[in-house]
Computed example of a mutant assay.
Amino acid sequence: MPRDLVFTPDAPAPPSIYSHAVKAAGLVFVSGTAPTDPATGQIVAGTAGAQVAQCLRNISAILDAAGSSLDKAVSATLVVANEADFAAINPAINEEWLRWFPTDPPARQGAKMPLQLPGLLVSIAMIAEA
Rank of each mutant, 00 (worst) to 15 (best):
A39D: 11
A45T: 10
A24S: 12
D64Q: 12
V30T: 10
N90P: 00
V22N: 04
I59Q: 12
T103H: 12
P38E: 10
S60L: 04
I43F: 14
N82H: 12
I43W: 06
G110F: 15
Q51P: 03
L98Q: 15
G46W: 01
D104S: 13
I93A: 04
W97A: 09
A50G: 06
D85Y: 00
P106I: 12
I62D: 08
Y18Q: 06
T33D: 04
K112M: 04
G67S: 07
P102M: 06
A25C: 11
L70D: 11
P35L: 09
D37F: 05
A25L: 14
E95M: 09
S19C: 08
R57H: 15
K112C: 02
G49C: 09
P91M: 14
A21L: 09
A53L: 02
A87Q: 03
K112P: 02
F101H: 11
V79P: 00
G41C: 08
L27I: 05
G46E: 01
A76P: 01
N94R: 13
F29S: 10
A61P: 05
N82G: 03
T33F: 03
A21K: 13
K72A: 09
D37W: 03
A87F: 00
R99H: 13
A61V: 04
N82I: 06
V74G: 01
E95A: 15
R57E: 10
L56H: 11
V52Q: 03
Q54A: 12
K23W: 04
G46I: 09
N58L: 05
Q109L: 06
V28N: 08
A73R: 03
A53M: 01
S75L: 06
V74R: 15
L63F: 05
A24E: 15
I59A: 07
A111W: 05
Q54R: 14
T33N: 03
P38Q: 10
I43Q: 14
D71Q: 14
T77A: 10
N82A: 07
R57V: 12
H20Y: 07
I93K: 09
V22Y: 09
I43L: 13
F101R: 02
A87N: 03
G49H: 05
N82W: 03
P114N: 02
G110I: 08
L27Y: 14
V44R: 12
A107N: 03
E95D: 15
A88V: 01
D104R: 15
N82Q: 13
I17H: 14
L70T: 09
A50S: 11
N94S: 13
I17Y: 10
A45W: 05
Q54I: 05
S75Q: 02
V80S: 00
A66N: 08
S60Y: 03
L70F: 10
S75K: 03
Y18F: 13
V80E: 00
V74E: 15
V79Y: 00
V74S: 01
K23C: 04
P102Q: 07
V22F: 09
E96H: 01
N58C: 07
D64E: 08
A45I: 07
A87Y: 00
K112I: 14
A48F: 02
A73H: 07
C55L: 04
R108Y: 00
A84G: 01
V80P: 00
A84D: 07
P15V: 10
P106T: 15
L63E: 14
G41F: 10
S60N: 15
P105M: 12
F29I: 12
G32D: 11
S69R: 06
W97F: 13
G110E: 07
F29K: 04
P102W: 02
G67L: 10
P38I: 08
A81H: 13
T40L: 06
A107R: 08
L78I: 15
